[in-house]
Structure formats: C-alpha cells, structure tokens
Design a protein around this nucleic acid. Structure first.
Length: 234
DNA sequence: GGCTTTAACGCCATTACCTCA
DNA sequence: GCTGAGGTAATGGCGTTAAAG
C-alpha cells in the first residue's frame, strides 16, 4: 500500500509493507495495518481542516515569478521613495484597527535599495525615517480585523500564493501594505503545514500501533504453530 | 553552452507583541 | 494589576530559480 500525499507544500509518502509482503509472500493471514479509522479520518481531515492540496512546486509559484518579472519590466527602480509613497497611499496604509510596524532589517534594506515598485512600497517605510519615528514605530504589532482575516482566508482558499497583482489588489482592498499581505500568506501557509504535519504524525502513530499489534499477533501465531508442530499427536 | 551575478520569491526559525485566562 | 501561555504579525537567514551579462 502506498499513500502518497503532497499537500500544503508537504509531501509525505507512506509505504506499508503489508501489501508488498502479501504480494510476494501470499500469506493466509490477513494483514490490515492501516489504522482502522485512518483512511476516512485522514481524508475527512484533509478535506475539512484546510484547503485544497497544494504543493510548494505549485504552478502558481512559477506563474507568480514569471508574472512578477514581466510585471516589473519597465519600472524605474531608482524612483523608490516616490513609488513607495504612492503605493502606501494607494493602499491606504493605515490599517483600520492597527498600528503599523516598522519595516526594517536586512531583507528590507536589500530590496528597498534595488527592489520593485511593489517592494519599495512595502519596505520603504524604514528608509528616511528619523530615529524618533523609528523608535515609535518599532515593531508595533498589527492586529487584523475579523473582516480582514475573513477576506484573507477567502483569498487563501482560492490560491495559497499570490502573484504581485493579486497581492497589490488584496492589499488595497484590505487597506494593508502588500508586504503585510505577503507575510500573512506566508504565516498562513506555515500554519497549514503545521496542521498537516500534526495529522501526518497522528496517522503514522496509528500505523505504528497497528503494526505493533499485528506483529504481536503474528508472533503469537508462530508460537502456536510451533507448539502444534512439536505436539505428540502430529 | 557554461559561468557568474542579481533579483525575487518561498520556507523556516525565531522574535516580539498582543490577548486572555 | 501581574503573569504566563498561546496566537500571530513581523523579521532575518538561507536556498532556489530564472534572467541578464
């Protein structure tokens, strides 16, 4: 038996010796090593706990990259601050119910120095900011509203990665910076994967238990057969 | 065609903040 | 009011990929 899954960027292959051994060594003993409830549970959980299966090598990623590059062609990367301001304003930067965290750090610096229009907008807020402002904004945590979360969830159900245009549109719709949308999707994928891992662990645990039980049963049967063989009647 | 560089992206681990019991 | 736990937004590092030179 082979259960192959590639969900949520996490691929897991479960191979069970039962079928293999049954095929190569036709045993009269029925081997059912699958957790009794696991198939249904597994599939149900897959269907209910999260969205459609996806893989990290999903086409969307590639599409996204291609689109990104085509999207960015012709953009003057030297006009960072202006572009940043435009994007921020266009997106209505200030979240309805939140403060804005500072965007700083290596990546931000790197991308702000030569990034795209989009990334300028997302990350330029750390550039040209005074120390006082920087101190004020230092990693104030945003709390998304229920509506924002719902919309993000809805969007995530449709596609778990966003191309730049989708990201911009969503950010604009939510009144967030594109970077925040990007981060949300990143974290959302991580949460999804974590849940998937938990389910996988549970599944493997059940498999292990079943195998242990089956092994115990077979050992016992072997003992009985040996005893039978050595008995005087035979 | 093979190489190096660069940019963009995603994942992961971690941090930092917020909420709540 | 204080505190620890849990949730999650945000950050930094690193690997991968593709385009350009």
């Amino acid at each position: 038996m082979m259960v192959e899954r590639e969900d949520l960027g996490l691929s897991l292959s479960l191979s069970f010796p039962a079928e293999k051994s049954a095929a190569s060594n036709p045993s009269p003993l029925p081997l059912n090593l699958m957790p009794s409830s696991s198939p249904s549970t597994f599939s149900i959980m897959q269907k209910t706990c999260w969205n459609q299966p996806f893989s990290s090598s999903d086409l969307s990623s590639e599409t996204c990259r291609v689109e990104t590059r085509s999207f960015l062609k012709g953009i003057d990367v030297n006009c960072l601050p202006a572009a940043a301001a435009d994007v921020e304003e266009e997106a209505g930067v200030s979240s309805p119910n939140s403060t804005i965290s500072s965007v700083s750090g290596k990546r931000s610096e790197r991308e702000a120095s030569g990034g795209s229009e989009e990334h300028d907008g997302e990350r330029a807020c750390s550039r040209g900011v005074s120390d006082e402002e920087d101190a004020e904004n230092s990693r104030k945590k945003l709390r998304l509203s229920k509506d924002q979360s719902a919309i993000l969830e809805e969007s995530f159900k449709e596609h778990n990665t966003l191309n730049p245009k989708q990201k911009m549109a969503l950010a604009k719709r939510l009144g967030l910076r594109p970077r925040q949308v990007e981060v949300w999707f990143q974290n959302r994928r991580a949460r999804t994967k974590l849940k998937q891992t938990e389910v996988d662990c549970e599944f493997l645990k059940r498999c292990c238990e079943n195998l242990t039980e089956e092994n115990r049963r077979l050992q016992k049967e072997v003992q009985e057969l040996r005893a039978l063989k050595l008995s005087p009647q035979l």
